[in-house]
Structures are given as structure tokens and as C-alpha cells.
Design a protein around this nucleic acid. Structure first.
Length: 259
DNA sequence: ATGGTCGCGCAGCGA
């Protein structure tokens, strides 16, 4: 079972790259963020022709998340579970694919520490934990992946000193992430790579990608029983190269078959 | 040292 997460930064602008990538990466499940389109505009037929069922939760110009699956999509929940203050944006989608409760998340960008959007981000993370409590059980196979806009620790940024005090690395953001992880999740990339400084996002500007100046903010978390089946993970830097790339690279996790 | 680019949509904002 191969599961991927990719912030595509507009599916309309990225469709050729996404189709190319699916063609060679052959994920069983692909979670996307920042599709930036309405549900009506979502190219479900094109994905169907490639063998994937899909579900999309979009709004238009901003945000938007999707799950593609060739192992089934059931019990879909758009946004936070019932009983939680609804999200004003399209940032979360939950579905069961091949026996795994999959969640694709696009965590708000906080803009600046202390900004109104920063507080919205922290509150959004609080609600994500409530969503986990309501929509899943830690003993089940659960996978939470997406663009968290938070670097979990200083290994996850190219220069901790330069990033110090900024958004993505602030202590309250990391604490909010830890609170979500505390539900019963493990960072599968870090399960495989402990010291490695590998990133998933690089600013388009200033040749940041070529200078290896990025952040690891696209994350894949698995519940214990699923994490125990982890075979390997990969950040596909090739997808960040070439013609009209997203500013994020896909992150792939491969899980062994259930015994 | 600083700033450097995209996408959306048609100016300038958001990331």
C-alpha cells in the first residue's frame, strides 16, 4: 500500500505534472492540498480514466483538498466532524481507503506570529485534534497527511537561526502539532530517517530549491498499528524540478501488506 | 547583504 501527499499549488495549473507523477509513482492513495478549484471544476473523470476514484472538498480560488484512491473511498467526511465548530475554509477531508482511515489536511498559513491568521492556525490545530477524537480510534489504522505549515523541530528547516521567531517554527505551533501527534500518531518519515535534513517545500524565489534551503512541512503521520507496517518513505525531489513545478514535493509512504 | 516567484485573474494579494 503506497500512500502519497502532495500540495500541488493549483490542480488546474499542475494537472499535467500530477498525471505524469501518478503515471510513474503509481500511488494507491494520493492526497492533495491547495487544489484551488470548485468541486464542479475538479477533473474526476480524468482521474477515473487513470483508475482512481476521487473525492474533492474545494471552494474556488484558495485551499481545496482531495483524495484519490484505487483501493476504494468510503465514509467520506468533508471538514471537521459534526459537533466541532465548522471550518470557514476547505482544508480537511477524511475517507477510508483500503481499510485505512485517511485524512488530508491543509493547515492554515499563520502569516506572522501574533497575526489574526496565526491564532486561526493554532485554533485550527486544536480542532484537528478534536476531529481525530471524534472521527477515528487510535487502535485503528489511521493516516493523517498533508501540508501542516509547521516544521516539527529544528532538523526540519535549513537554518534554525534564520527561522527563529518566525511562523512555521514557533513554540506554540509546535506545541499544537505535538497535541495532535499525542492522539497516537507517529511521523513515518522520521521513523525511517532520524538525522537527515530533507525538505518538502522550497520557496520559488531566490533559487532556494537549488541551494537546498527548504522546510519539511509536508508530513505523514500513522497510528501505531499502521506505522508498524511502514516499509519506506520518499520525498520525490524530481517532482520539484522541471517545467511549472509546485513549490512542494510529494511525500510517499509505502506500507507492507497486512499479515 | 538583499531580493529574487508563483497562481489567480487582471491589481495586487496570498503563500
Amino acid at each position: 500500500m503506497r500512500i502519497a501527499t502532495w500540495n500541488v499549488n493549483s490542480l488546474k495549473a499542475r494537472m499535467d505534472r500530477v498525471e505524469e507523477w501518478i503515471g510513474y509513482a503509481e500511488p494507491d492513495v494520493l492526497c492533495m492540498q491547495e487544489t484551488k478549484m470548485t468541486d464542479k471544476a475538479f477533473p474526476a473523470m480524468a482521474f477515473s480514466a487513470m483508475g482512481y476514484d476521487s473525492v474533492h472538498h474545494g471552494e474556488g480560488r484558495w485551499n481545496g483538498v482531495a483524495i484519490l484512491s484505487r483501493v476504494g473511498i468510503d465514509d467520506v467526511v468533508s471538514g471537521f466532524a459534526a459537533g466541532i465548530e465548522p471550518d470557514r475554509d476547505a482544508r480537511l477531508l477524511t475517507a477510508t481507503c483500503g481499510g485505512i482511515r485517511v485524512m488530508t489536511v491543509y493547515v492554515p498559513n499563520g502569516r506572522e506570529v501574533g497575526h489574526e491568521h496565526y491564532h486561526y492556525k493554532l485554533d485550527w490545530m486544536r480542532r484537528l485534534r478534536e476531529h481525530l477524537d471524534a472521527a477515528a480510534t487510535p487502535t485503528d489504522e489511521v493516516l493523517v497527511c498533508g501540508d501542516f505549515n509547521i516544521a516539527p523541530d529544528d532538523r526540519d528547516v535549513w537554518d534554525p537561526a534564520a527561522c527563529n521567531g518566525g511562523t512555521h517554527v514557533s513554540e506554540p505551533e509546535r506545541a499544537a502539532l505535538a497535541r495532535v501527534v499525542d492522539w497516537g500518531l507517529e511521523d513515518v518519515f522520521r521513523r525511517q530517517y532520524q538525522a537527515d535534513r530533507l525538505y518538502t517545500w522550497w520557496d520559488y524565489r531566490a533559487g532556494m530549491f537549488h541551494k537546498h534551503m527548504g522546510m519539511r512541512i509536508d508530513l505523514m503521520y500513522a497510528s501505531a498499528s499502521l506505522a508498524d507496517r511502514l516499509d519506506w518513505t520518499l520525498i520525490d525531489r524530481n517532482a520539484r524540478k522541471g517545467v511549472q513545478p509546485s513549490d512542494h514535493a510529494p511525500l510517499v509512504g509505502s506500507f507492507q501488506e497486512r499479515l
